[in-house]
Design a protein around this nucleic acid. Structure first.
Lengths: 349, 349
DNA sequence: AGGCTTATTGCAAGCGCTTTCAAAACGGCT
DNA sequence: AGCCGTTTTGAAAGCGCTTGCAATAAGCCT
């Protein structure tokens, strides 16, 4: 309140353009909004004047006055993992080609902040919101919807939320991964789960169980260890699996981070991958292609998810009354080098 | 213009709060801006009313009316690399603790867009701008500065730009990396450069050369291959180095991506790291800890850079007349497993 | 109690732009 | 020339909030 920081003289407003071109602000506004009933010569003169003055629209004022924002918000937990990276890339590209800008907000798990962010955004800075935060409180989403604010959830846990959602075939992915290992000859297959509060985690686990069942392999509870999608737990869980009397010849990790932790644990134990133990991840984050051996994983179409989410959101923005849609994209097994047939010794065990 | 998309009835404004609390909008505004001369009881009543109504400030209006934005913009090339990731994490954290929000804009190398972004942002959505794009046109930055818009460049190439900059000791890093290898016993040390248009690239190379010189090792032009900071070039450059009659026993890569490519090439050639060839990178992106063997690298204090840049920017926001500062952070050698003494055979060669 | 200083609050004028609503200009027809 | 349906414009009312200025209410002193 005290400090000045006042507007710099610099600001060229629509008024300046108007007077320079010799028309009213309304007409200038129309030109910049592509209104059709403006004489061609008028349009030109205005554009010319704007050019000379170096005019740039003030988004805030425009939005305040009821104009439409050309930005879309993306709410993400943080920039620190490949998962968000992949999605946001897809989002960014799709947005760019639709003439929208991306505004990414990070929550860093500070629960309180999420609300503030959403408030802020919903306040009109953006035309719609994409949410990749794993556990958005249902109430937030509902508040947004009540305001008729366009929202699309990405890979969201809570299926009770009535909103457009883009997700993937987690169950199928779990099934495919497991079956891949079975086809390779594995019979003792460990599974490190994700954060069980999330739908994706339970689905992937269910897929794993079903695959075992379909191939008449008895399920062994000792082979299923609960994780939390984080690397550290992947490491710990794997150590636990390795101490088993009859240790698994292969492990399905609920996501790549977990798999990375698992690989580390296996290495630390002096075992080789895939020689002694095969390992398969989930997500296909960039790191998966970099570790040694390269990680075989169930690819989540991250980038595609982002793109589809954008398309969906744009539809909602166009038509506020559009019914929520649920789009499920399919996962795909990406074979690399971390899986092989179990070695004879292990199998005989 | 045609479509409706009008404001939903929902919007609780400062007027609603004012009338509910029985005070004027000015007072309500003061309460929300932490103005001191407001009676405690008044403040309480207003806060209470706001709470009951679920009031949230409209950022746009606030900013339009001259209020200060509590967001800082970050202009980055894209979310797809660990470098930006590291910096943006630091930025995000520092911002969060200063009560600011982060608005990340990606340019994806669409040169044209950068301008539009900057325009947009400069237009008042944010209080200041952080730029990590490698080659921002000087004119953009100058335009921004002319408007007295706070800007801080991160690790920027063009030193002729008169603006606050945060960068790192690239020269020192190149020197340290090379010296590390020399101390290990290497004498034939290859160097794969970065994009030579960038200052960081030339500095790192210069550091390498000086280290060789200081240790009386003749410089061999054949050992220096030009790269572009990208993985693919790292791979290609390394293949080239490996075909040398007297191939190097160690390679300094201008950044981690390049190093990653180099490692791949070495593997593909059937050589081991660090057995046959030692390799050292630059940056310490997250992937460096994940590859096998883990990459020894010159750590760029990415996160710290982000944090420092934020502090600097905040200073500029507080005091628009602050002179540009140039802060250089030091790099640090992070030893992991990709470097070892050259094996006897290679040395004798 | 009267006067003066200081703390609180309200008024009202914008911030830059969009968007009705209505007036002004055209063009074409009779 | 006179009338009518369009096409182009301009005037003016906000959008929700900040703030300078002025008015009012408290406090304190003599």
């Amino acid at each position: 309140m005290q400090r000045d920081n006042s507007k710099k003289q610099q600001n060229v407003t629509i008024y300046d353009v108007a007077s320079r071109a010799g028309f009213s602000v309304s007409t200038v506004s129309r030109v910049f909004n592509g209104y059709e009933f403006v004489r061609e010569s008028t349009r030109e003169r205005i554009l010319e004047a704007a050019d000379e003055l170096g005019y740039v629209a003030n988004l805030q004022a425009r939005s305040l006055a009821g104009g439409r924002s050309r930005y879309v918000g993306l709410l993400a937990p943080g920039l620190d993992n490949g998962y968000v990276g992949g999605i946001s890339q897809g989002v960014d590209r799709a947005l760019a080609s639709a003439g929208y800008g991306l505004m990414l907000f990070t929550t860093h798990h500070h629960r309180g902040q999420e609300l503030a962010y959403i408030d802020t955004i919903a306040n009109g800075l953006t035309a719609g919101l994409l949410i990749t935060v794993p556990l958005v409180p249902k109430s937030y989403v509902e508040a947004l919807q009540q305001q008729q604010f366009p929202v699309v959830l990405i890979d969201q846990a809570d299926t009770s939320i009535q909103s457009s959602v883009v997700d993937t075939t987690n169950w199928q992915g779990g099934y495919t991964a497991t079956e891949h290992l079975i086809n390779l000859g594995h019979r003792r297959i460990g599974f490190i789960t994700g954060l069980m509060a999330l739908r994706s985690a339970t689905d992937r686990l269910a897929g794993y169980k079903m695959a075992l069942k379909d191939h008449d392999i008895a399920q062994d509870e000792a082979l299923i260890v609960e994780g939390d999608y984080m690397r550290e737990m992947g490491y710990a869980a794997t150590r636990q699996l390795l101490t088993l009397e009859r240790r698994p010849t292969a492990i399905v990790a609920a996501n790549d981070f977990t798999a990375l932790g698992a690989m580390e644990a296996i290495h630390d134990d002096g075992l080789t991958i895939p020689g002694d133990i095969s390992i398969i991840g989930f997500d296909d984050i960039p790191e998966a292609r970099v570790v040694h051996p390269k990680l075989t994983t169930v690819r989540l179409p991250l980038e595609q998810m982002g793109r589809v989410a954008v398309e969906l959101l744009l539809e909602h923005i166009e038509d506020p009354d559009l019914q929520p849609k649920h789009i499920t994209l399919s996962t795909q097994l990406t074979e690399r080098q971390s899986c092989a047939a179990p070695n004879a010794l292990s199998v005989s065990t």
